[in-house]
Design a protein around this nucleic acid. Structure first.
Lengths: 333, 333
DNA sequence: TTGCGAAATGACAACGTTGTCATTTCGTTA
DNA sequence: TAACGAAATGACAACGTTGTCATTTCGCAA
C-alpha cells in the first residue's frame, strides 16, 4: 500500500515547501522560520521520514563511521571495544565491524581492501598475533588506518598496551623487594602479548645483570600454570614467579601450596590482567593491569585525529598499573 | 595532485569503454568479453579504483549491513559478538555497531531511531537488563529487528539462551542424585540472567513439591559467593547449592572448605558458564554452559531471514549444556 | 558475401540527498 | 507608501552507482 521509502521530496510535498527547505530543517534549523519548521516537522512525523544514509553520504563524501577489524577476539577485547565504541559515540561516529573467521587467513591488505568497500572514513585493526604482510602493508591513502598491536609499524599509526613495560615493572618490583631472580611462565607462543611480556621480563633481568632462567611454557589456562608450579617448587633458588596472566599465576600458586610451599612466604608471585579477584575470594595476587578501555579510546581518537591527514603516523603506548596485593614478600627485612 | 576519488567513469575513460561496462565487469563479469574485462581490470588497478559504498547502496536500496546495538557489554558478549560476526561474514553482511554509554539512558525506541539513520538492513539488540519501553516498543517497519533477551516481546523476534531451562536442568540433576532441596545464590538483582536462573530454580523445586529456601543475594563475584557459603555452611539441611555463576560457586566452595566441609562429600555445588577451569587447576565444578556463540549465530540468521518479511516474529531458545564434573555427590547410593 | 540471431556494449535516467546560486518575502526606515 | 537590505525559500545540478532499453558487434549458416 504505502511507498517503500519516504523521501525528503515526499515530506516537502506534504508540507507544501521545497525539498531544499526540508533539507534545511534537518541540517540548519535556525535558518528556517519557526512556522515553516513546524509544518515540516509534522509532515516528517506523519510520513515517518528517516534520512537516507546512502544518499547523504554520497553527497557529503563521508560516512561518519569508523571500521574495526577484529583479527582476534579475546577476553580483553571486550573492554577495548567498549572504549572504541564509547569514544566513537562521543565524537559522533558509528562503528562498522568485520572479523577474521576462525581458520581463515586474512592479511592486513585483505582487511583493508574489504573495509574500503564498506561505509568507513578510517579504520582500526585489532592485531594480537603476527600476520604475514605486517611489514610490507601500506594503508590505503585517504583512509586513516590505526593498528592496535605491540609491534611498531613502518607507516601506520599504532596503539598498544605497554606490555613490555608492564612486565619490566613487575620484575623491578620483585628486585626492589630483594629478590635475586625471577622465573617466568609464558602464555601461548603465537600470542604477541605473551611475547612482549616475556621480552619485558628478559630486559629487566638483563638490565640488572641477572642471567634469566629458562622460561616455562604455558597456554594461558590454570592447568598449565599448575604444571609450571610443580616444576618451580623443586627449584631451591626460585623465590619469585612472574606468570603471563592471572589464571596461570593461580595455577602456579596452587601447585606451590600442594607442594607444601607458602605464597608469599616461600615464593612470591605476580600475574597479569588483575582478574583473579573475580573468581577467588580474598585474592592476594599482585597483578599488572592494562587499561584496555583506554586503549580503545586512544585508538579511536587517533583515527579521528588522522582523518584529515591520513598519512600521519604516531605510536601510542598505554601504560599498565601494578595492583599491589600481598603475594610478594619483601626479602630485604 | 590526484583526484580525491576514482569513479567508475574515470576507469571507463582510462579503459576506453563505457561506464556501464565497468559496472558490468564488477557485477556480472561473465557478460563481458575477456579482452574487455582485462582492459578494465588493469585500468582499475592503475587508478586504484574502489567501488563507492554510498552510491551503490543508494541505487540498490540496501546496505548489506546489520546493525548491532549493545545495551550492555558483558563477558559472555564476546562469544556472542563472535557468533554474530561470523554468521554475518558467511552471509555476506558486515556489522554496524553502536553502544549505550555508561550512565546514558537509552530506550529501544532511541536505539531504533539512531540505527535507522545508519547503513543497516536490519538490527539486533543485545538487551540483558530491563528497559522502560520494552513492552510498548514497535520496530520500524521494513527494518527487521531481533532482540537478544530472555523476555518475550509482543511484536519483535527474540533470541535467548534458555537460562531458565538451564537452571531447571541443574536443579533436576541435584534431585535426581537424591538431594532433597537446593539452595540458590543469585547474581546482581537487575540482571535478567540472574532473574531467569532464579526462576528456573524456583520452578524446578516447585514442580517437585519442594518449598524453596530463601535465595542468597550475590553480585557475580567470588567474594559474594564466599559470604553466601559461610551462611550456607551453618545450615544442616544444605546438601546442594546452585550458584548463578562459576565465580560465586567457587566462592561458595572455598567458604565451605574453610568451614571444614567437603565438596562434594558434605555439600554439592553447581555453577553457570563453565569457565572455572580456566582459572582453577583440576577444577571439579559441574556447571551449566550456554552457547553464546550459537546465540549470536541464531540472532543474525533470524535477522537475515526476516529481511524480506520484517514483521514476522519468532522466539528462539538456545539450550544450555550441563558440563558434568565431580562437584555433585550421588546421595542415592 | 549476405543476413540473421545472439552476444556485447553503450546512452541515459534514476536513487535521495546537499551545495550553489537565484528568487521571493519580510521587516524597517525614509 | 516606497524603497531597501536581510532573511527565507526555491530551482537545479551534482555525488557515483545500477537498471532499462537501444545500439553495435560478433559468429555462423546460407
Amino acid at each position: 500500500m504505502d511507498k517503500k521509502n519516504v523521501s525528503m521530496n515526499d515530506v516537502a510535498v506534504a508540507a507544501g515547501v521545497s525539498l531544499k527547505t526540508v533539507s534545511r530543517v534537518i541540517n540548519e534549523p535556525d535558518s528556517v522560520r519557526e512556522s515553516t519548521r513546524d509544518k515540516v516537522h509534522s509532515a516528517m512525523e506523519t510520513l515517518g521520514f528517516r534520512t537516507n544514509f546512502a544518499a547523504r553520504s554520497l553527497k557529503l563524501g563521508r560516512y561518519g563511521c569508523i571500521g574495526v577489524v577484529l583479527f582476534h577476539l579475546s577476553g580483553g577485547a571486550v573492554d577495548m571495544i567498549d572504549g572504541i565504541a564509547d569514544a566513537a559515540e562521543e565524537r559522533g561516529f558509528a562503528l562498522t565491524m568485520i572479523k577474521k573467521r576462525a581458520g581463515e587467513k586474512m592479511t592486513l591488505a585483505d582487511a583493508a581492501r574489504r573495509m574500503s568497500q564498506l561505509p568507513v572514513d578510517g579504520m582500526i585493526f585489532n592485531l594480537r598475533q603476527m600476520v604475514d604482510d605486517f611489514d610490507t602493508f601500506e594503508a590505503l591513502k585517504d583512509l586513516k588506518t590505526v593498528i592496535i598491536t605491540p609491534m611498531e609499524h613502518p607507516t601506520c599509526s599504532t596503539v598498544s598496551d605497554d606490555q613490555e613495560g608492564g612486565a619490566r615493572m613487575a620484575c623491578e618490583y620483585f628486585l626492589n623487594h630483594g629478590h635475586k631472580n625471577v622465573y617466568f611462565v609464558s602464555g601461548k607462543k603465537e600470542s604477541l602479548s605473551s611475547q612482549c611480556r616475556m621480552k619485558g621480563w628478559l630486559a629487566a633481568l638483563k638490565a640488572h645483570g641477572i642471567e634469566p632462567p629458562e622460561p616455562l611454557q604455558g597456554d594461558w589456562n590454570a592447568d598449565s600454570g599448575y604444571a609450571a608450579g610443580l616444576v618451580l617448587a623443586d627449584k631451591p633458588d626460585c623465590t619469585a614467579v612472574l606468570a603471563a596472566n592471572d589464571c596461570m599465576a593461580n595455577g602456579v600458586m596452587m601447585a606451590l601450596r600442594d607442594k607444601g610451599l607458602s605464597v608469599p612466604d616461600d615464593v612470591s608471585v605476580i600475574g597479569f590482567d588483575d582478574e583473579l579477584y573475580k573468581t577467588i575470594p580474598n585474592s592476594i595476587l599482585t597483578s599488572v593491569k592494562f587499561r584496555h578501555r583506554e586503549l580503545g579510546v586512544r585508538a579511536l581518537n587517533e583515527v579521528v585525529a588522522g582523518l584529515e591527514a591520513p598519512s600521519s603516523r604516531s605510536r601510542t603506548l598505554v601504560s599498565g598499573v601494578l595492583i599491589e596485593r600481598s603475594s610478594v614478600k619483601d626479602l630485604r627485612a
